[in-house]
Amino acid sequence: MSEIPNSFTLDGQLVPFEPGQTILQAALAAGHYIPHLCSSPELKPHGSCKLCTVVVNGRHGSACTAHAMPGQDVQSDTPDLNGKRRLQVQMLFVEGNHFCPGCEKSGNCKLQAVAYDLEMLNPHFPHFFPQRPVDASHPDILLDRNRCIMCEQCVEASRDIDGKEVFGLAGRGLASHLVVNSPSGLLGDSALEAGDKAANICPVGAIVHKRVGYAKPIGARDYDTLGIRAQARAAAEGEGP
């Protein structure tokens, strides 16, 4: 049990939290990184990538959906959990078609950044090589489903922030795929605009802006100099009390 109310321990370190915060929110605010992909500070917890899985009082759970409680014992940075996370990232890479060297998002991509952080050296599993259509019908935005990891951040951002419901997830199992709300099913016929949150939130290169070709050179991109873990820490210090 911890001494201070409204705090829990994360890998043995005391983490304070505000009532209502999830374990992930509290950890990030205190400068502790827990790998995560589908959650964003601007959206409601979603809990689908399961990268943030931690062990809370002996039981597995998602840090992004589990509420912080006083005295919790949370394990995150363990060889077992990190091994599982590496496996999960490898699975995401073989599920879609990720050719990083040819992707505009390379260097700014959270999937890639998490893979580096977890020291993933290869995709490990045979690729599924799914056939997924690219949608270039929109004047400003390209939707390349080959790189989609089904995190549904665009779905939620469009619904909850833009108030438009441009995107949805359809199908099931490995056949799950992103669909667009327009009679033709094409992005060009939808209400999406380049300034929408949904057009700017994708953690990978599935929703990218057209005519932005390597404006920032490789080597100078988001995660090129500072890894995703170090950035999370820096962000907490910047905002910290």
């Binding site: 399961k50 990268l51 699975m91 995401l92 599920e95 599993f125 089904m150 099931r172 199992g173 799950s176």
Partner: peptide
């Protein structure tokens, strides 16, 4: 039958 919502089941059952 995997619904496809979470990555470990969606991809794991396929593998």
């Amino acid at each position: 039958e995997s619904c496809g919502f979470c990555a470990p089941c969606r991809i794991g059952t396929g593998l």
